[in-house]
């Protein structure tokens, strides 16, 4: 019996999310008295694979097959199913991100497993298996029991602390033995945004709304974001006006993010906007309207003119950095 966690790599490297997932999966495995196997698909060096052991993986299945680079949903689900069967996995864990959402539902059908997505914390109990998740885009929670023998869950990023625990890890090559006709997705072109902090990854996000009055005023937000190694985001009207690229739109119909700190600058905080950011650990609001709903969601706030406030924040961050 085991717990299987699906890990993603970025150009052969793991990142915080991978370690967070393995830590989370290790805690579930411990609770169930079972071992933890991590599945890695792609070209990841052994040293990097071994790093998963530090967070509680007992075994790593290493799939090196270039055909998976097209992220064919069906082939990936087949590969994970074969790994899960080989390991006798009872719980299979994905991230609640693009890749996880693409594979987990297919896999759940393959494995006759019940699935719950966006689980945001350890199971309430493992016997029966009950997990907690947000509903209505953060306006409620539910406790949900998965009734099947095998369970599939997707895990909401930034909802578990990374735990280093050390331990030996075995790395095994694994070949799911898929035939070519199982791969039907052809990638014609890939466009990567480089040199920018990826929004869904960012620990700090600086976000602007209509209060900035125009795209020409974004310099101060970019400067603040640059100093904090933060991602930049915006509200829906800003993306709709074309002031900022649509990739930066956060909210219920845009990207849903959960950074440690979310700076909402000149954003009133409509309910649809809050739906995309209300999982942030700390929300900071700067707005000239004391009645703006963002202050109800915020932890820290300043009522005032953002064009006076943001330069002070920039100075303060510079001072903080200078003082180490």
């Amino acid at each position: 019996m085991s717990v299987l966690v699906y890990t993603e790599n970025w150009d052969g490297k793991f990142k915080k999310l991978s370690y967070e997932m393995v830590s989370f999966a290790a805690a579930i495995a411990k609770e169930m008295g079972s071992s933890l196997t991590a599945l890695s698909i792609g070209h990841v060096a052994d040293e990097e694979l071994k790093s998963l052991g530090k967070y509680g993986a007992n075994k790593v299945l290493n799939v090196q097959d270039d055909r998976f680079e097209s992220l064919d949903n069906k082939a990936l689900a087949d590969a994970v199913a074969k790994a899960a069967e080989a390991e006798g996995a009872k719980v299979i864990i994905f991230a609640h991100n693009n890749e996880g959402k693409a594979i987990a539902p297919r896999l759940s059908v393959r494995m006759n497993a019940g699935m719950v997505s966006g689980v945001n914390g350890l199971p309430v109990s493992v016997e029966p298996f009950v997990v907690r998740k947000k509903l209505f885009t953060g306006k409620a929670f539910a406790n949900i029991q998965i009734k099947t023998d095998v369970k599939v869950i997707t895990f909401a990023q930034n909802s578990y602390e990374i735990v280093e625990q050390g331990g030996d890890v075995v790395i095994e090559a694994f070949d799911p033995q898929l035939s070519d006709d199982e791969f039907n997705t052809t990638v014609k072109e890939t466009n990567k945004i480089t040199g920018k902090v990826i929004l869904t990854d960012a620990e700090i996000v600086v976000s602007g709304g209509r209060g900035l009055k125009g795209p020409e005023n974004w310099g101060i937000l970019e400067e603040l974001a640059g100093l904090l190694d933060a991602g930049t985001a915006c509200s829906r009207p800003v993306a709709d006006e074309g002031w900022r690229p649509k990739e930066e739109h956060v909210g219920q119909t845009g990207k849903i993010i959960a950074p440690n700190v979310y700076f909402a600058i000149g954003i009133s905080g409509a309910i649809q906007h809050l739906g995309g950011v209300n999982s942030s650990k700390i929300i900071v609001a700067v707005n000239k309207d004391p009645e703006a709903p963002i202050f109800e969601a915020a932890d820290y706030g300043i009522i005032g003119d953002l064009f006076k406030v943001v330069p002070q924040l920039i100075d303060a961050v510079k001072e903080m950095k200078a003082n180490g």
């Binding site: 719950v116 406790n143 949900i144 915020a298 932890d299 706030g301 005032g304 006076k308 406030v309």
Partner: peptide, 23 residues
């Protein structure tokens, strides 16, 4: 069905926003 919704909850009320002066 493979899952059962056992119970629902509303989020705990959030602590008041801590305000800092504009200046």
């Amino acid at each position: 069905t493979r899952t059962d919704f056992l119970s629902f909850e509303l989020p705990a009320p959030k602590a008041a926003c801590k305000m800092v002066e504009e200046d």
